[in-house]
Simulated assay, not measured.
Amino acid sequence: MAPQAPPAIKVPKDAELLQAQADLWRHSLYYLTSMGLRCAIKLGIPTAIHRLGGFASLPDLITALSLPKSKTPFLGRLMRVLVTSGVFASADNNNDELFRLTPRSSILVDGVEADEHYSQTSFVLAATSRHYAEAALGLADWFKKDIVGPVPSPFEDVHGATLFDESTAALDEELDELVNEGLAAHDNLGIGTILRECHDLFKGLDSLTDCCGGDGTTARAIAKAHPHVKCTVLDLPKVIEKAPVDGVVNYVAGDLFHSVPHSQAVMLKLVLHHWSDDDCVKILSQCRSAIPSREEGGKVIIIEIVVGPSMGPIMYEAQLLMDMLMLVNTRGRQRAEKDWRELFMKAGFSDCKIVKKMGARGVFEVYP
């Protein structure tokens, strides 16, 4: 059959044409907002505003950050973009513009000792690093490659290294540190909310294993809120050897692909999205083997992003962007509720329920 000529293109009307061009500007240049955010963190702007009492003028910031006065107008242009994107807020005070923190920038303040404050600066710096950007730039070439066997991520394809692996440190030690710090901060943020909103999640448990629990921050929070629960953290030896020994949490060095310590409940918090479906089934199977029957209180607690539009367009966009982050940098993905349920059943579990949806995340109880 002879190829058909493509249909005539429909030229947008004047207003649509101009709007389309402006929209393409926005989408093409969004990376400059990301780089502006990175710049603000590298300069220490959120922390400076906090230390200045929560409000700061441009001259205040120039002085506090030890920047040349000649850069004042340029700093103003950077702040204007970040105010427009909601990172900071501003108000006039006797014709002097003052900048203040918003919830977005408050979690970018470093050096603060406060319950539930987990600075997200490392996450942002890793996400805006040249290594992540180079992996994303290689996305089109990656799609064109016909690969036999497990498909490596674009990050692996470009850099020859895997995130959260010794190969990351060999690639760039600073990136490896940022990635691990960012992962810990990302995972620990919100545990207080979960404990308050899902108090019954840990009720009646006598023991719990937190898989990939890092330094035990989450496990210690659970033990503090529920002293009757004996908490164990399972993580790789290189992580466990740096964990604090305080007697509150028991630490076990190991690999969740091979063995999970026996306990009444096992928790996987923002772990599975890094892995393929096949790998998730292997992990979940180990978790199922580590717990007693449902009648004896056995369950796996899963805390993960649940992709879906129910939380509104902004949260949905954030979930989809996090899925793109997984696509570019790992072999995992973010999943919808249906995908999660299918995965649990494939791993041999009998039932599951969503205890609560909070922001982009959902809290599952999965039963053997």
Rank of each mutant, 00 (worst) to 15 (best):
P237H: 05
S310Y: 05
A20K: 07
R331Y: 01
G36F: 12
K238N: 13
T121G: 11
R333T: 08
L52R: 08
L236T: 04
L178A: 08
N250C: 10
A127E: 03
C352W: 00
E365G: 00
Y132G: 02
K69L: 13
T217K: 12
A265W: 06
A243H: 00
F155G: 05
F164Y: 15
A360W: 00
V266L: 06
D157N: 11
R288V: 00
T168W: 01
D172E: 09
H159K: 06
G213P: 02
V260W: 02
Y251R: 09
T193M: 05
V307K: 13
R294D: 09
V124R: 03
F143A: 07
G192F: 00
K13Q: 12
P368R: 12
A89R: 15
L178D: 01
D172C: 05
F123Y: 13
S34N: 14
M267N: 08
V179D: 08
I194L: 09
H186L: 05
D146T: 13
G214A: 11
G44M: 10
F164V: 02
P6L: 11
L75A: 03
E134F: 09
I62H: 09
A91N: 06
K145E: 15
L178N: 03
E365S: 00
T209Q: 05
A170R: 14
E116Y: 08
R331F: 06
Q120M: 15
I191C: 11
H131R: 04
R335I: 01
A140D: 10
D96T: 15
Y132V: 12
I49F: 14
V328M: 01
L321M: 14
L43Q: 06
P313L: 00
P313G: 02
H117D: 11
S70Q: 13
A290E: 00
I147A: 06
E116H: 13
L272I: 02
K224P: 05
S289R: 15
I194M: 04
D165V: 06
I302F: 00
D23T: 05
T47Y: 13
D210L: 07
D115Q: 15
I303H: 04
V81M: 04
R333M: 11
T121Y: 14
P261T: 07
G44K: 13
L43R: 12
E113L: 14
S122G: 06
L65Y: 03
Y30Q: 04
R361K: 13
H258A: 14
C352V: 05
K71N: 14
R294S: 14
S57L: 06
D206W: 05
T47C: 13
C211V: 15
L208R: 12
P152T: 01
G149F: 04
V112Q: 13
P7G: 08
V355F: 07
L236V: 10
S85P: 04
F202S: 04
Y31Q: 01
S350A: 08
D187L: 01
L139F: 12
Y118W: 15
L37I: 12
I41G: 08
A140L: 09
Y118P: 03
K338N: 10
A223W: 10
M311E: 15
E241L: 03
C211D: 03
G44V: 11
A135H: 07
M79D: 09
D339E: 14
P261E: 07
A253D: 11
A133V: 10
S350G: 06
R294M: 08
A40V: 07
V306E: 10
K145V: 14
A136T: 03
G182L: 04
A127Q: 11
K356H: 06
T232H: 10
